[in-house]
């Protein structure tokens, strides 16, 4: 039987996992301060349950689950829901190019929280529909519909009808 990873291994894990978790968090919450707070919170909770992480290989998925649980809890707060998503971005005064980093990130930030979470899990974390549904605690149908709504909204915001999803089911 494999031994649970040690506390020293947690410190190493935190250093290694930090960049990817941070980028996921940034995509989810849209600003650096909140992203740092979210990942710090998720890592601290992961540490709190470190004895239950059976192997070091399981730790990244565990920390990601904690991060998304925490984020979804934040999103349920009215202040988040009122402040973050907007239907329409301010007029940029020029044609948008979705290959421009800030424009795409702003567009993702304009999605409602659940759609944003689905987009991050499927297209940044590269999870399939089933695993995305498991992380978010919703049905696979919800993941599919949220993906579709999100893509429609991104196409509208970015003005790019050719935005595609090379999706694995």
């Amino acid at each position: 039987m494999a031994r649970p990873p040690t506390k020293e291994q947690f410190d190493e894990f935190a250093q290694v996992a930090w960049p990817r978790l941070y980028r996921s968090a940034y995509l989810l919450v849209g600003d650096h301060a909140s992203a740092e707070d979210l990942v710090q919170t998720a890592l601290a909770k992961t540490f709190g349950n470190w004895g239950r992480v059976r192997t070091l290989e399981a730790a990244p998925a565990y920390a990601r689950q904690v991060l998304f649980n925490t984020a979804m809890s934040w999103f349920r707060k009215a202040s988040w829901n009122r402040e973050k998503p907007t239907e329409v971005l301010p007029d940029l005064g020029h044609e948008t190019d979705p290959t421009t980093r800030s424009v795409l990130l702003d567009a993702v930030a304009a999605l409602p929280p659940r759609q944003r979470a689905v987009v991050v899990l499927r297209f940044y974390e590269d999870l399939d529909v089933r695993r995305t549904a498991a992380v978010l605690g919703c049905s696979e149908g919800t993941v599919k519909s949220q993906t579709s709504f999100a893509l429609d909204k991104l196409r509208t915001i970015l003005g790019d009808p050719t935005l595609t999803l090379e999706v694995t089911p």
Binding site: L27, L104, F123, Y124, T162, L163, T164
Partner: peptide, 10 residues
């Protein structure tokens, strides 16, 4: 065509 997965990762 712009694949969202590639764009988002970049």
């Amino acid at each position: 065509d712009n694949d969202l997965r590639t764009l988002l990762r970049d």
